[in-house]
Write a protein that binds this DNA or RNA. Structure first.
Lengths: 196, 196, 196, 196
DNA sequence: AATGAATGAGCATTCATTCAT
DNA sequence: CATGAATGAATGCTCATTCAT
């Protein structure tokens, strides 16, 4: 199995570090190989080409990212709590791994159109998670039933993404986690049923 | 004055068309020169380098974009109306100019870190417009006074941006303008004073 | 003895098939190893390097090729008959083994200068056979005694080689053997004593 | 017109010298550029890619080579004289330009299959010249009318080519021109009408 | 003897920018 | 002002060969 091969993971971890440090366009294959302490050619035993490294890296990292979010949100009963957990996990995971945050929020977006399409595919499960929470919230009579799920999901993802990007561009100098309650409140505001 | 020189504008307009058609990485200086019907060298009489073309293009286009938003929002009295107008103008202008939408939402984001910092500078006035509307809303007792302006602005901009990007990636196949009322309602939801 | 080792021959036969199918530049060592059903490293237990495989293959194949020509020509008494037999054997053997014909006429010629020198060495015995037939023909008073043997040998070899190469490049679509009498007559024309 | 551009010819002449000196595989584009005293990139203003340099070089050189042969042979009345002139010109031109001889006889043959097909196309006019001489000879009652033209042409070209290649591989140490009368006699032998 | 994962040198090509005309 | 020919730095990928097992 691919995941048992140590060099495979060495290379992926090296790619994250190299891109976080040197930026997308400053990250030559040879630099990644050096950081991973393997020969340039070794890269090509595990990856088809440079793009494949990046996509695979994104898939692996986002896979784990999303998996943990699903895991934690599923422990919650109510949709509004699930949304809170989702925000906590989203911000929490990126807070803990600045390199990953830099790579996903800034560097990987400089990739070409094809790579970006792939990235969108990887993100789809995350968007589905949000959609599911919204549907559940409507069923649970927590969210209004006249919301347009696609739109609300774009609001939620766009908001979280913009907040994290701003935080990364400010070099992660403040505590992202402090924003959680306010963000939760803001996002709920537009979709919750009016409490009497 | 720079703007009186016809070639200057020829080049900028050519850049928008070339990038929208060929993508960021497929837009060589020589291609822009050809589209603008000038020689390659002529470009460098009007712009310092390739990055300068892109930044200038973005500044000019976003300048007009923001100017029109300021113009229209200032005609409104109340902050919630101003927010509606802002959304209308944001979506409306990009709806009318698909090339511009492609360039700002997809292609220009592939630029490097330095260019992205510049782009953020250009966007600052827009973000200020949003901030001002929010402050006004609080003063007018329309928005809650416990909102964190920075955060709300990130929500508003992140939401609008994400929605437009999704629309462009779906090849502008549906009508962006139809979303306006729902988006307005969603965004207001989190910030409005509770109506009794 | 080297030739008793089965893998040694497996590799050589695999090389002929792989080169005939994929061309000289499409024939990587790993491809030959795969076709021979051995590991890449195993190749190097039997051959010094890639060039050694090719030279050895050429030596083995040309050795058999020449051996059969010597065997058959020696059964003939007169030099003009020997020449006919030589042409028959030259065309006959390549007619029967298209892969070998492709490899010797087209692919192996793409090798570098050093390899080509080696190939010439391998060919020397064949050229000697031609020289011997010519000398014999002069002694037997069949060929004119003013011919320059080196030159005539170059004519004979050059002609046969060019004819076979043309046949291979036409994808062996016609019957090479039909040409034999005419070729024999042509070559004899320049060297035979005038019959009164 | 392309041929008025000096760099175009500089590059072609440089390519001949570089390949003659360093061999086909030792001739990097940068080496050719250096020899031609132009920048690497300039090569690509005049040639599509490396292969294009080689094909164009061969076309230009063989074009002149063949043109001169046609020019001189057409001055002769009888086919046997034409054949003599053809041999004189073939050997004469390569005798005068050792670099060209090395390139055409040794180095260019190391090229890949596609390039070799192109080379064959360039050679076609030369083969036609030989065919025409043969047809003329038959009409003039100088050559036998039962010869198979394709075959005789292959003999003539194969013989001349083999002789020149041998001469080049012996590092052009002897005088190729001395062979002309004997070669002429040899080739005529197989095709001439028997003189009573 | 046999394996096959790992190595790392080597090279064609693009394109932003310059500068002589 | 305008031109466009010329420049040259910069990099992803292949594949013959090795060597620890």
């Amino acid at each position: 199995m691919r995941t048992n091969k140590p060099k495979y993971h060495q290379i992926i971890e090296a790619a994250v570090r190299v891109i976080a440090k040197n930026g997308f366009h400053g990250s030559q294959v040879s630099k990644i190989a050096k950081e991973a302490r393997v020969a340039d050619g070794t890269i090509y035993l595990y990856f088809k080409n440079k793009e494949d490294i990046l996509i695979t890296m994104f898939k692996e990292k986002m896979g784990q990212f999303i998996e943990k979010i699903v895991e934690q949100t599923s422990k919650r009963e109510y949709a509004d709590e699930k949304l809170l957990t989702l925000i906590e996990m989203h911000f929490g995971q990126l807070s803990k791994d600045h390199d990953l945050a830099i790579v996903t929020q800034l560097e990987l977006r400089q990739s070409n159109y094809d790579l970006r399409l792939e990235i969108n595919n990887v993100l789809k499960p995350y968007l589905s998670v949000i959609d599911d929470i919204l549907k559940e919230g409507i069923e649970q009579d927590i969210f209004r039933d006249d919301i347009k799920i696609t739109l609300v999901r774009q609001m939620i993802f766009g908001t979280l993404d913009e907040i994290v990007t701003n935080w990364v561009m400010k070099e992660c100098k403040y505590d992202l986690l402090e924003e959680i309650p306010l963000v939760h409140q803001l996002l709920l505001g537009g979709i919750e049923k009016i409490k009497k």
